[in-house]
Design a protein around this nucleic acid. Structure first.
Lengths: 325, 325
DNA sequence: TTGTACGCGTTATCAT
DNA sequence: ATGATAACGCGTACAA
């Protein structure tokens, strides 16, 4: 029986072998259902994705993230339970159900809102959880820190070194921590470079919103010479808007993204952006969550820092002012 | 007890109410683990994704598909178990494990290869499965038909009506059924239009491969005046390649994609493509699979047919031959 | 080493 | 017809 499989001490080797042979010959595999019941663990972790489908479609985050998570989970015999919540909320009820039904032993939290009530909810329920996102004010909660700061700083420094002075930002929703943190990093990087913050438009990470925001930027009396977008998708839409207005990128307008989408490298011009180790986050988050579930000491985990990828969409700032509109 | 929840006959209404009230006051929820054990069902279905992470990242298919699947499953109290297999195979062992451990009651099959051995494997194991993909030779197997034919035909018809004669195709891997089916549809559409098949390059759905294929096309002695790509990602990369070679799209080269990625609509020029109801496939696949698992008669399910979206990347064929290179 | 109680909802059986 | 009771599924863990 189970001793054989778990290779426990106190069992004659030959007996164990005999059992294993017979078991194999019968095609026996431990039933996961029974196992889950007896150890009173689900042997699964949940990932609730609360995002409008449209934003989700073009986002390279989740596939990579899930790949990282799943790799670790599989090694430990855990399964990944995916749940999408369509509505605008953060899916509280989904988490609650997952927890009370005992379907999962822990959950991963992404797309955290500022003042997100999910951590409190999960603490109340007593469900282990790992937050994936930029460091919060309360660092006590287990989280894999995804500090966008260095990446953003690298972009701004790059643009500053090219002589840009009016560096704009098209951000994600400010209620999302990773939207806000990128904006804050952008603002503080400008400040520490001695520049005043350029124009800022809040968008929602979608191409549509990126395009609209770009149009707004270009209609300004004093348009920026460089725009930094909170993700590649918006940046790519931005390049298209500039092109459609006869503005040449990067000669007249420099554009930088964030995420390093595959397509970005193959556009014309190829997109300057920031690579982030999303698979690594996934792995780290999974390791941390399993440590939490199995009450192990949290292992130290190394994450690749974000790194700037300079490509063709950024160049020296134009010496003459770009005429408005 | 369970009679109350399942609303079985043979129980006085007032007793049932009393039980429910007490249960609620105690915050009781049926344990999913015990339930799964006693009904000897996992109450979950599996989705094994066997794809290189890079191809996965930029693909809008899975997020939409999963959204569709998950919506249906949640309604029926089923969970979605996600598994990614990194290696090049189709993840046979992953399916086998899922089945023998009893973690799932059925699986969804995507990215089917020609001569895929998974259907046979699953039949042998006795695990209900629904294939998502173009109709196969053996229509006996439960599948949600994703017939790309009409969409491809619409694209070709559109290009033909614009006067194009040399219509090329950059396809997906020919070992994948949806790669092959699009190529076949393209070839037969050309044939029925009385045109000889234009040049064909097999790629792998990635932007990189799309770009390379496009370069090959444009180096031909007699380059095509229109290229139809098996997905938007390759098409977008194709537009960029053309642009970088000083070829104007659509004036000198028409380009069409397949999938209707969000970004496609916001590029310059916006991409002509085919919308497919991926969320609908997800829903249909889930419904079908649950019917199969619960041994119901398969419900008829309506799928939106693919539809052509004409945008700016296609135009009348140039009257003068495009000079090579 | 071997046997047995346990976890927990479901369902069939047995009284009432 | 209605309520109560027991057996079941299947590993696990502890006692014997």
């Amino acid at each position: 029986m189970s001793f054989a499989f778990n290779d426990r001490p106190g069992l004659a080797p030959e007996t164990r072998d005999r059992i294993l042979v017979i078991a194999r010959s019968m095609g026996w595999t431990p039933s996961w259902r029974a196992r889950a019941l007896s150890v009173s663990r689900a042997l699964a972790v949940g990932l609730v994705i609360a995002r409008p489908p449209d934003t989700l479609r073009a986002d390279p985050f989740f596939p990579s993230f899930i790949a990282g998570v799943e790799g670790v989970l599989a090694e430990h015999g855990y399964a990944l339970l995916l749940q999408l919540v369509a509505s605008g909320g953060t899916g509280d009820s989904a988490y609650r159900r997952l927890a009370t039904e005992g379907r999962v032993d822990g959950v991963l939290l992404t797309d955290l809102h500022v003042d997100d009530e999910r951590p409190a909810l999960l603490a109340e329920i007593g469900l282990p959880a790992v937050i994936v996102g930029p460091d919060l004010e309360e660092p006590c909660w287990p989280a894999v820190g995804v500090d966008d700061g260095p990446g953003v700083q690298a972009v701004v420094a790059h643009l500053v070194s090219l002589g840009h002075v009016r560096i704009a930002h098209v951000g994600g929703p400010d209620v999302l921590v990773h939207g806000r943190s990128r904006r804050v990093a952008w603002a503080s990087a400008l400040m520490s470079a001695g520049l005043e913050p350029g124009p800022f438009v809040e968008a929602d990470f979608s191409a549509e919103a990126g395009a609209t925001a770009t149009r707004q930027m270009l209609e300004l009396a004093e348009p920026p010479t460089a725009i930094f977008y909170a993700n590649d998708l918006m940046a790519m839409a931005g390049i298209a808007v500039a092109a459609s207005q006869g503005l040449s990128v990067p000669a007249q307008l420099s554009i930088a993204g964030f995420d390093d989408t595959e397509l970005g490298a193959h556009l014309q011009p190829p997109l300057t952006t920031v690579t982030t180790d999303v698979v690594g986050w996934g792995r780290a988050a999974a390791v941390r969550l399993l440590d939490l579930i199995e009450q192990r000491e949290p292992a130290a985990l190394g994450l690749c820092p974000p790194s700037l990828v300079v490509r063709g969409s950024t160049a020296r700032a134009p010496t003459t002012q770009v005429p408005a509109s």
